[in-house]
């Protein structure tokens, strides 16, 4: 095993720390992320590409390292997002449930404190999120949405860039690691 892969694997599969947060930490950051999406793009439309609720979902799923917790957090955030959009309830909910589940599953195998890995995972899950939204819109709702691949990749990159400082800020909300 090379040094790089050892760092990414966190020195072995058994070395998986589960982070704990105060209950308020599960409410305030998602609410702030959703409020950000509701309010900020009004004045800075170039920030509308930011999918902060997704990044918060990914963060909690990665740090909790429990697929059930990840799925539940993703489901809750997604449903609130759906309620504030013109889409039927469940679109964002289903996709974020899957994101939360898979992010938590992946976190059991990797060292999620690693900045490079956080960047890659944020990038990957943004693309995953947009792709599944497109699939659901076309497959389940019969909407003729276009998947704009170059735009999605650029947005995924920008979201991944934002994810790094955001995750560092959210790291401060941790109370303990088991």
């Amino acid at each position: 095993m090379t040094g790089m892969s050892e760092r990414l694997m966190g020195g072995g599969l058994g070395n998986t720390k589960i982070s704990k947060f105060r209950p308020v930490a599960y409410i305030v950051p998602p609410l702030v992320a959703i409020l950000f999406q509701v309010y900020v793009p009004r004045f800075a439309s170039y920030l509308s590409y930011l999918e902060l609720p997704l990044l918060v979902t990914v963060y909690f799923a990665l740090m909790r390292r429990q697929p059930v917790a990840g799925a539940v957090i993703g489901c809750a955030i997604g449903l609130v997002q759906d309620a504030l959009s013109q889409h039927p309830l469940g679109m964002q909910g289903i996709v974020k449930t899957l994101v939360g589940y898979f992010a938590a599953s992946i976190s059991m195998r990797f060292d999620v404190e690693n900045v490079a890995l956080r960047f890659v995972l944020s990038f990957f899950f943004f693309v995953f999120h947009q792709f599944f939204l497109w699939v659901l819109a076309r497959g389940l709702l019969g909407q003729s949405m276009d998947l704009q691949v170059p735009q999605t990749i650029i947005f995924a990159f920008l979201n991944a860039v934002v994810a790094i400082p955001l995750f560092l800020v959210l790291d401060r909300l941790k109370t303990e690691e088991l």
């Binding site: 469940g90 449930t97 899957l98 589940y101 709702l141």
Partner: peptide, 27 residues
């Protein structure tokens, strides 16, 4: 357990989605 919870959440939301599409109604 993990897979069961995931399936439960996804199926519940799919049913919610199907209800809204079929009934053309909102929740």
């Amino acid at each position: 357990r993990n897979l069961s919870v995931l399936l439960l959440l996804v199926v519940a939301q799919l049913l919610l989605l199907a209800y809204q599409v079929k009934a053309r109604d909102d929740v």
